[in-house]
Amino acid sequence: MRAFLFLLLLFPVLELFVFFQVGTAIGFFPALLLIIAGSALGALIMRLAGLATALSARQSLQRGEMPGAQMLNGMMLTLGGGLLLVPGFISDVLGLLCLLPFTRHRLASMLQRRAEEQAQRQRAFAGDAPAPGEPPRHRPEVIEGEYERRDN
């Protein structure tokens, strides 16, 4: 937790340092225009990615499929757009990595694999769930009916 807090506090300092370096190399106003253009691009991508994800998820649900892959892809697009929206060059580079198809698919497959491993770990510790590879257990047969209590 302390490492995360340290990185969270260090990130703006690194962003300012990189902005200063880029501003020194190409000038202040071109660097500022790059930051503003990146933020505008991020806002546009977030808007389009959200709409495209919602439409593809709805189509998958209409076909009777679970939209897991589309949702994960949309999440990566939204994360990339959000990182572009944050002012700074480091966040823009990370956002572009989330937007490029080959890195996006690789990150999405890594996240999906970790989520599946986590789900298997949770299932292994569940009391009534069968372990992976074990056949499902049968529940006791329930007979529905009505009853009447008669006290003598």
Rank of each mutant, 00 (worst) to 15 (best):
G68R: 08
R121V: 09
L72H: 05
L32S: 04
G127A: 12
F20L: 10
S109M: 09
P87F: 08
G82W: 04
V22M: 02
I45K: 04
G42S: 01
Q62D: 13
F125Q: 13
V142M: 13
G42E: 00
M46Q: 08
G145D: 06
G68F: 13
R104F: 08
A37C: 06
Q120W: 11
Q62H: 14
R58E: 09
L83H: 05
Q62R: 15
A131S: 11
Q21D: 07
A115L: 14
V86W: 08
V86Y: 10
E116F: 11
N73P: 02
R137D: 10
A108L: 07
L96C: 13
P12M: 02
R47F: 13
V22W: 02
L34N: 03
E146S: 13
R123W: 07
Q122L: 15
L96Y: 07
G133Y: 05
D128Y: 13
G50W: 09
E116K: 11
A126P: 03
L100I: 15
G68E: 08
Q118F: 14
N152H: 13
S39Q: 05
R123K: 10
E117D: 14
A37L: 10
F102S: 14
T24I: 03
L111Y: 09
L94I: 14
L5D: 10
L8Y: 04
T103P: 09
P67S: 00
G27I: 07
S60K: 07
T103C: 12
F29Y: 13
M110Q: 14
F20C: 04
V86T: 13
V18T: 02
F19Y: 03
F89L: 03
L79C: 12
L5G: 08
P67C: 01
F28M: 05
A119Q: 14
P30Q: 01
E116L: 12
A131D: 06
E117Y: 10
L83Y: 09
P135I: 01
L79Y: 09
L16Q: 03
D92N: 11
L9H: 07
L14Y: 00
L77S: 03
G74V: 05
G38E: 02
Y147N: 06
R137A: 15
M110Y: 12
T78G: 13
L14Q: 01
V18I: 07
V142I: 15
A124N: 12
L85W: 09
G23I: 02
F20Y: 12
P67Y: 00
A49T: 05
